[in-house]
Write a protein that binds this DNA or RNA. Structure first.
Lengths: 217, 217
DNA sequence: GTTTGTGAACCACTTCACAGCC
DNA sequence: GGCTGTGAAGTGGTTCACAAAC
């Protein structure tokens, strides 16, 4: 169904998983995958794989499966990975530095072009090859470098200001690791990742398991 | 509706957000919050807040709202945060060390009791006060310390082995930062956080925005 | 008057099941 | 015979809208 250009959010969130699995198969020299096989690798159900991929177009062959190389290309194109997106990180603390050192960045078509921090000891330095600018330079540098994705690794108190600064500089996608709720205009994509939230959700499950054990006695 | 003991997954995932917002209001000395106010702070819709909270019980007062302190207690109880959960981290690289230094850990009722790594230079050391053990010691140490939550910060190649080791040691909740699909038995909760996946999803949105700009010409 | 708690309507996503093509 | 693509049915979650409680 190549006609409709509205891909469900849930499908978009799974495309990177499929892509990774496809790369694994490509590296093994496998020429084609069935939805069954891809589903197994991605840890989902085969019908879901077929419906997801059908949103990109009819790229499979009945009785055969999907051509691995061709499907990799199509998924990458759909995700916008055929072009390079400039990324900037606000906050050069532990997490910011760990992210800057993440090898998967450039490997996957993202260029880390700038970091920002308030600490005078860090400003002017280079972390894993990326220059650290003062926070005040964010609007100018982000605009000049054409930053597409802003990553926020600051304390929660200043996260919203940083988000606003990125938005003002024309950044259209934000990823925050700050433990606070952020808001952004409708046209800006905002994703939040929060360790303490993940732990609390797991705490709920731990408790549920513990209760079941007690009940089972 | 205190009768039903099945809280929707989506609600559980939002409880930590509400909890954080409630703490903010408590610190400001606010005695009660309406669903409207809590919704605004949490960035969701008021009806959703009410339905979510109704799953915990009827803790609100019509015409008044929810008592902040009481609601904090109930949400914490529901999430299992009134008890301490021992946590272990496998992988003492950049990310593992950044997580070990995360102050929110102990502050929120999680005790980081052990780290594991293969690097002989790290084994025997202590990172932010947490001892680093060899990977081989994982089953014994995790079982002995009663680890409830295992965090995986290793390269993807060994992530599944580590997950299996945690599961064998009786760990019932896993959080993985490794960029690979993991599988675990049904009774083990597994959450995955993946920077490169988040970036790829944002890449999709960046591309969509770029396309709209072109169309708009 | 205010605000909760909740059926009912709605919507998005998932899964089934099978026709259609290889 | 094998596997995709997709309508149709099913599921879970969201939002509406209002009666009940303060």
């Amino acid at each position: 169904m190549v006609t409709s250009r509205r891909i469900p959010e849930a499908t978009v969130a799974r495309l990177p998983i499929y892509l990774r699995c496809l790369h694994v198969e490509a590296k093994r020299g496998v020429p084609t995958v069935s939805s069954e096989r891809l589903a197994e690798l991605a840890g989902v159900n085969a019908a879901k794989v077929r419906k997801d991929l059908s949103h990109l177009g009819s790229y499979g062959t009945r009785g055969v499966g999907y051509d691995v190389g061709f499907l990799i290309f199509q998924v990458r194109r759909e995700l916008g990975l055929t072009q390079d997106w400039p990324v900037a990180i606000a906050g050069a603390g532990n997490l910011g530095q760990a992210l800057a050192g993440y090898a998967g960045f450039r490997a996957r078509g993202f260029s880390l072009v700038a970091m920002f921090d308030t600490d005078p000891a860090k400003v002017g330095q280079s972390i894993h090859g990326t220059p650290v600018h003062p926070i005040g330079a964010l609007p100018a540098v982000a605009a000049e470098e054409g930053v597409a994705i802003g990553i926020i690794c600051t304390p929660p108190e200043v996260a919203q200001e940083l988000a606003d600064a990125f938005v003002d500089a024309g950044v259209k996608s934000l990823l925050s690791f700050a433990p606070t709720v952020l808001s952004s205009p409708d046209h800006v994509a905002l994703r939040m990742v929060d360790l303490s939230m993940e732990l609390q959700i797991l705490s709920f499950h731990s408790q549920r398991v513990a209760e079941q054990l007690v009940e089972g006695l």
